[in-house]
Amino acid sequence: MTHRQTADEPCVPTHRLSLRFSSTRRGARLARRLAVQQLTEWTGLPHDCDAAHAVALVTDELAANAVAHGSLPGRDFRLTLLLPPEPVVRLEVTDTRPERLPRHPAAVPTPPDAVSGRGLFLVAVYARRWGCEVRDAFTKTVWAEVARPS
């Protein structure tokens, strides 16, 4: 699935949590910690398992992108966690810049000596699939589905 396509079928979660965070580095850090904590509470998985590490990394990258590229002054970003019946956890980060769509990591290669620009490449590696949806004129949602043990 390419990064701008939506999922074929709607996600029907068994668990759902949605919270807003300040568009700051602290907000991104809190979102990452909450995502891992919620995953472990919902599934009983340990904090140091592969799925928790993947959720932490993907949440961190999506939240950091929302803060760096998707925020307007005074506007928060929203993190939504969904636990569908399938063995994945779906992470959604909604920000206030629908005109700034993420570029596929292969579209613009990052120079080897660059200190940033690899976040979506990491998301693509750790997520089973990911994408971006513009649902209205004011927001966009970047989502990723990370595998978890069934």
Rank of each mutant, 00 (worst) to 15 (best):
M1Q: 14
H3F: 12
T6A: 13
T6P: 07
A7K: 12
E9C: 09
P10S: 09
P10L: 11
V12N: 11
P13N: 09
H15P: 05
R16M: 15
S18E: 15
R20M: 12
T24D: 09
G27M: 04
A28G: 03
R29I: 10
R29F: 12
R29H: 13
R33K: 14
Q37V: 08
Q37F: 13
L39M: 06
E41H: 09
E41R: 15
W42L: 01
T43M: 01
L45F: 13
P46G: 11
H47T: 10
C49M: 05
D50Y: 13
D50W: 14
H53F: 11
A54D: 07
V55A: 05
V55H: 02
V55C: 03
V55N: 02
V58H: 00
D60P: 06
D60A: 13
D60W: 10
L62G: 01
L62E: 03
A64Q: 08
N65F: 02
A66F: 03
V67G: 00
A68G: 00
G70C: 04
S71Y: 04
D76H: 11
F77S: 01
L79M: 02
T80V: 06
L82H: 05
L83K: 02
P84G: 01
P84L: 02
E86Q: 14
E86H: 06
P87D: 08
V88K: 03
V89K: 05
V89R: 01
R90M: 11
R90F: 06
L91D: 01
E92S: 01
E92P: 03
D95M: 06
T96N: 11
P98E: 05
P98W: 07
L101I: 09
P102Q: 01
P102S: 02
H104A: 14
H104M: 06
V108T: 14
T110R: 04
P112C: 07
D113I: 07
D113F: 13
A114W: 13
S116E: 12
R118Q: 10
L122A: 12
V123H: 05
A124C: 11
A124Y: 07
A124W: 08
V125F: 09
R129Q: 10
R129T: 12
W130Q: 06
E133C: 10
V134S: 01
R135D: 15
D136E: 08
D136K: 10
D136C: 09
F138H: 15
K140T: 09
K140R: 15
V142N: 06
W143C: 01
A144Q: 05
A144C: 04
A144S: 00
R148N: 07
P149N: 14
S150M: 10
